[in-house]
Design a protein around this nucleic acid. Sequence first.
DNA 1: TTCATTTCTTTACATATGTAAATGTTTTTG
DNA 2: CAAAAACATTTACATATGTAAAGAAATGAA
Lengths: 175, 175
Amino acid sequence: MDSESLAIFTSIFTELEIKKYDSFAKKGEFSKKIAFVESGILRAYFNNDRGEEYNKTFFTEGSFVGAYSSLVTGEQNLIDIDCLTDCVLYIAEFQDITQLYDKYPHIERSARILAEYLFVKKEKREIELVTLEAKERYAIFQKEHPNLEQLIPQYHIASYLGITPTQLSRIRSKN
Amino acid sequence: MDSESLAIFTSIFTELEIKKYDSFAKKGEFSKKIAFVESGILRAYFNNDRGEEYNKTFFTEGSFVGAYSSLVTGEQNLIDIDCLTDCVLYIAEFQDITQLYDKYPHIERSARILAEYLFVKKEKREIELVTLEAKERYAIFQKEHPNLEQLIPQYHIASYLGITPTQLSRIRSKN
DNA sequence: TTCATTTCTTTACATATGTAAATGTTTTTG
DNA sequence: CAAAAACATTTACATATGTAAAGAAATGAA
């Protein structure tokens, strides 16, 4: 991004403190906001008919958090996002960003590159989910989130891996 | 896309016929090409260490086919794409498209929207893979690809569902 | 049409994972 | 600190799915 675009871009974010257990985005809403994680941990999770939760993503320091699918499609949000710890965010209206696209093509370019990057990450995860056993996915999680394991309950990690806490406990005990 | 952008965009594609079993993209290559499927069926699949295949995507009439992750990252391609039937494609160098971005922001906009759309599709699939049993994923496959089941071998569908042909056969026999 | 090849189904057994409940451990809070 | 709550582990049993091999059915080539 050129410096002018970057200046405009950063100017639309404002600081927001948000407490452990507080919600950032709710299922059923039409999501409007995106934020940069200054500090803290959030999770995005899907809730199925049977009331089971699947932790889709953990957001940590330095990443952007938002109900991305809802933001880009304008459809109802299917996932919940909330805080696993107290968080400091820099938050913006997503529309205030998309409105910059016409005047600042470099910002739209960044949006394209981000979307492409997110796709690549999702594809990687898809392949892992299908071709690897939970034990191997656990090893990958530990590599990708070296600190997280100490900071959040194990049942959230199990949910991220797509297994029950019971099964995660078994996997852990076998090493 | 405005009509000028669209005209330029379509002008860079050329027709290509490609036979059943022929390859469109190979693992290890640096992918360069993208194509529109005029007719026929292709599959993108991932091959793990143990030699097991996972069919990631089926491409049918009217869709774009390409090793998307490799194209947008410039990294080595991790997946293979080849024809399950004879195909007629309209093919282009991906770089010839990306080179248009500066001059035709509407084309880059389309690329952004496509990337966002692909992400949303992948996220949907991710959730299905984790939260649904193979039986339910099979029902979704049948809905999303109403004709495909008659046109390709069942073991390719099993591979798409992330199960063995044996398990797919069991699922089918129970309905 | 016939034979060979490919694909599909079935069987028997093994394993990863789920469920439910009991128990142990850690953390929170009054 | 003590009690309660939250979390993690273990146990016993159930189930979805894998593996390997055999047999059945469908397809394709001579």
